[in-house]
Amino acid sequence: MSEKVALVTGSTDGIGLHTLRNLARMGYVTLLHGRNPEKVKAASEMIKSEGGAVQEYIADFAELAQVRRLAEEVSERNSKIDVLINNAGVFEMERRTSADGYEMTFAVNVLAPFLLTSLLMKPLKAAPAARVVNVASISHMQGGAGRRGGEIDFDNLQHESGYDVYGAYGLSKLSLIAFTNELADRLRGSTVTVNACDPGTVNTKMLLAGWGRVGIDVSSANNETFLATDPSLQGVSGKYFVSRRETKAALSTYDEQVRRKLWEELETLTQATYSDLS
Rank of each mutant, 00 (worst) to 15 (best):
N87E: 09
R69T: 15
S44M: 07
V74K: 09
S44A: 15
M121L: 15
F61C: 09
K80A: 04
G52Q: 08
K80M: 01
A126V: 13
M121C: 07
L20K: 01
Y28N: 06
V54P: 10
T97S: 08
G34D: 05
V90G: 05
R68K: 15
P37L: 02
I138N: 11
V133W: 07
S139M: 14
T30G: 11
A24S: 12
L31K: 10
A53I: 15
E94C: 03
K125D: 10
L84A: 12
V133C: 10
N78G: 12
R77D: 14
L70H: 11
S118M: 04
A62P: 00
A129R: 02
A130W: 00
M121A: 06
G52M: 08
E50I: 03
L31D: 10
Y102C: 13
V40G: 07
N22G: 12
A145I: 08
V90L: 05
Y102T: 13
K122A: 15
E72T: 09
L20P: 01
E50A: 07
E50W: 05
A99C: 12
A126T: 12
E103G: 09
F114L: 13
F106W: 06
M93P: 13
E56N: 15
S75H: 02
I138T: 15
L124V: 02
L116H: 04
F106N: 04
N134E: 11
V133L: 09
R69Q: 15
H33Q: 10
G52E: 04
L120A: 08
R95Y: 06
K41F: 03
S98I: 02
F114C: 13
F61G: 10
M141E: 15
V67M: 04
L124Q: 05
L23N: 13
A71P: 12
S139H: 10
V135K: 03
E92H: 06
E50C: 03
L64I: 08
I85T: 11
L120D: 09
V110M: 06
A130K: 00
A62Y: 04
V67E: 02
V110P: 01
H140S: 15
L120Y: 14
T105D: 04
